[in-house]
Structures are given as structure tokens and as C-alpha cells.
Design a protein around this nucleic acid. Structure first.
Lengths: 198, 198
DNA sequence: TCTGCCATGTAAGCCGTTACATGATTTT
DNA sequence: AAAATCATGTAACGGCTTACATGGCAGA
């Protein structure tokens, strides 16, 4: 069974507790970073598919959220759109761990999605993935700088600026990874604790 | 007529001279930055579509690249796969300029593709787009920091690191744009020259 | 009551990918 | 002549988006 980045993220968030779609969307943007936001047109079909595959279970929200001292009208229609609360199933958990271990080093989105749930991986696995990702970015960067150096043609100033910025951004990524690796290694020696407490 | 980022990039590169697909792909990665590479499965259908719409013209590469002192066998099959050399047509140029002016501030790829061809825009238009993009990123960032601040829940260390990194990357983007805006303004006062010569 | 936000969903389409298939040219 | 690289293309599919459609719930 295959799973997209979104599948993984949804399962990972639902591990922390039942949630409905709308809330899930907010948590997604919040968990994965400033510019990541998934649309409902993507999220709801995803949830539907996960439910169909038995990876999540859903129940209509039962609680009519009664306001104090106000008579609650029972007999909610129940026929129409009610809040669907999703929770992860055991096979959903199994898929989550299976997918989390795959790594997915070459794609920024996939890597970051996994990174957001790193606490579910053992320390050595975390280090392995971080180093693998870092090596990949370094390789890409070196490759690119070679091309740049080998180029005889004069390059347009805007294109040049774009490339320089891309290089700087990638270097910042690499530095971030290097810092994380250091922390992980320190934590590993420090009794196997994760960076959580640092 | 609508055009994707790839369409625009292809047209923009072909403005500099005729090229075949394979070469175009290399130039694309080179023009747009370290991690941007389009696959042939995307590029060739794009070229086909552009040709169908009369935005580029293609000719089979005529030159059999004769090696010195070697008899050239004419009668190349011509029935099978030969190098296709593409060039931009007048209507292709028209579409290029039309699309370039649209801006596309909200999507990183689209913005960067346009930026790579900024030399074809007048100075004030360049400044307008840079400022618009910068304002958008600043807004996103502020929004995100607000959310972050307003959040009571303790956040997982890895998720936190991911977000901090995203924020830092976005701030780097904004600084890059700010620098470009300064340069453009200086150049505008300095007799309307572009940053090309700086 | 009406406005605004919470909430769920579908349909159509965009824009790319991977995997595959083929052939031409150059180098060893 | 074999191997590597250049070069062109198609088929199937993936994973998202926008635009649309619907309705619940709370407060001014």
C-alpha cells in the first residue's frame, strides 16, 4: 500500500487524538511550516480514501455543544452534514510507521513531512535520514556549482541573482541539517534522549 | 490563452535563439536554479503543444555535423527521429510578454520563472512586482508568527524546528527581495539603467 | 434576521511525474 | 563493434488546485 505525503501527515496528526477535517487543515499548516496549506479539495477526498481503506475511522460528532442553561433541542437532523470526527485505526498506525521509515530523501515535501514526526523514529534512524538528506543536498549543490563554473557564456544578471539565491537557500538548508545532526549526536551520547528537552 | 510556468520559461529561452529539447532542458535547470529540473515527459509534450498553437516553430536539424575529411553520407533517413530545433514565433513572443506582465506573486515557481526574465520588463514594473511579492511574503510570515504566538499548546520540538526553519527561509527570501528593490531604485535614479551592469 | 465563520464535500482540470520505448551519434 | 551519451517521444497516473455547492452555528 502506497501513501502520499498528505496521507502520512493526516495519520501522524490523528495519532495525537481524534480530529475533524477543518481542524486537521489548520493543524497541517501549523505543523508543516509557514507556506504549507492544503486545500479542502485535497483533504476531504484524502480522508474519504483513508476511511475506505480502513486506516482511519469516523463518527459523526455526537455532542451538540450545549450552552449552559439553554434548552437543548435533541433530534438533530443527522441526515445532513455533521461534523465528522476521525481517528486513526491500528492498521493506520501500522502504515504510518511503515511509511515513516521509508525516508524519502529526495523530495523536500516528503522529507519535511517525515521530519515533523521524527519523534516516532529511534535516534539512530533520525541521524541516518538527516545525514542522507544533507548528503543529497550537498551533492546537488556541488553539481550545480560545477556547471556554473564550467559555463563560458555570460549569464543574465537576474538569472544569476536567482541562482545565487537558490544556492544560498540550499546552503541554509544544509546548515540547518548539520545543526540537527549535531544535536542528535549529542543527545545520543547524553543517554539516548531526543532533542525534545534541549 | 493561458500558459504554464514551463511554457513561459521555454518561450523565454527560445527568445535567445533556436534550441532543441534536450538542450532546453539543461538550460532550464541552469536558468531557474539548483533544484529546478523538468522531466522530458513534461518538456516534450509542452513543446508539442506550443507548436500546435503556433507559438514556436520547429525544423529538423539539417546539419549532419560533418566531421572534417570524412565523406558525408547524404540521404539521412529523415523518416525517423531527428533533432528538432525549435524557435519562437511572433505570436509566441506576444504571449511571452503578455504572460510576463501578469506577475503571479503568490506562487514561488511562477514568480521565479518571471523573475528570470525580468530584463524584458521596464524598471518600474520590476519594482512593482518585487514589492508586491515581498509584501505577500511579509503578510504570510506575520500571519504565521501570530498563530505561533497565540498557540497555547506545547509544540513538538521537531515540528518547531521545521517551522523555525521555514520562517528563517522566508525571511531570507524577503531580505533578498529587499536587496533587489534597493538595487532597482538606485538604478532607476541612476539614469534608468537596469541592475545588469552593477 | 442576517452576517460571518465553521464545516463538508464534489467536479473538472492543471501540471507535473515515472516508466517505458526508440533511435542517432560519438567515443573507446 | 560495443558502450556511453545524446535525443525524442508516449502512456499511465499522481496529487494537487480552483470553483462550486451545501449546510450548521453563533453573535450583532
Amino acid at each position: 500500500m502506497s501513501a502520499s505525503s498528505l496521507d502520512l501527515a493526516v495519520l501522524g496528526l490523528l495519532k495525537e487524538g481524534p480530529m475533524h477535517g477543518y481542524e486537521l487543515r489548520k493543524r497541517l499548516a501549523f505543523t508543516l511550516g509557514p507556506l504549507y496549506a492544503v486545500s479542502y479539495g485535497s483533504l476531504y477526498p484524502c480522508l474519504k480514501r483513508l476511511r475506505k481503506d480502513g486506516l482511519v475511522a469516523s463518527a459523526e460528532h455526537p455532542e451538540p455543544k450545549r450552552r449552559r442553561s439553554k434548552r437543548v433541542v435533541e433530534t438533530k437532523p443527522a441526515t445532513s452534514r455533521r461534523k465528522q470526527v476521525y481517528e486513526i485505526t491500528p492498521s493506520g498506525e501500522a502504515l504510518f510507521f511503515e511509511q515513516l521509515e521509508l525516508g524519502a530523501i529526495y523530495d523536500t515535501d516528503r522529507f519535511q513531512t517525515r521530519f515533523a514526526f521524527f519523534r516516532y523514529l529511534p535516534g539512530d534512524e533520525r541521524i541516518r535520514l538527516l545525514e542522507h538528506r544533507k548528503a543529497y543536498l550537498e551533492e546537488k549543490l556541488a553539481e550545480f556549482k560545477d556547471t556554473l563554473r564550467a559555463t563560458r557564456e555570460r549569464i543574465d544578471a537576474y538569472s544569476r541573482s536567482l541562482i545565487d539565491h537558490g544556492v544560498a537557500a540550499t546552503e541554509q538548508d544544509i546548515a540547518w541539517l548539520a545543526g540537527l545532526i549535531d544535536q542528535e549526536k549529542a543527545a545520543a551520547q547524553d543517554g539516548g534522549r531526543s532533542i525534545r528537552g534541549s
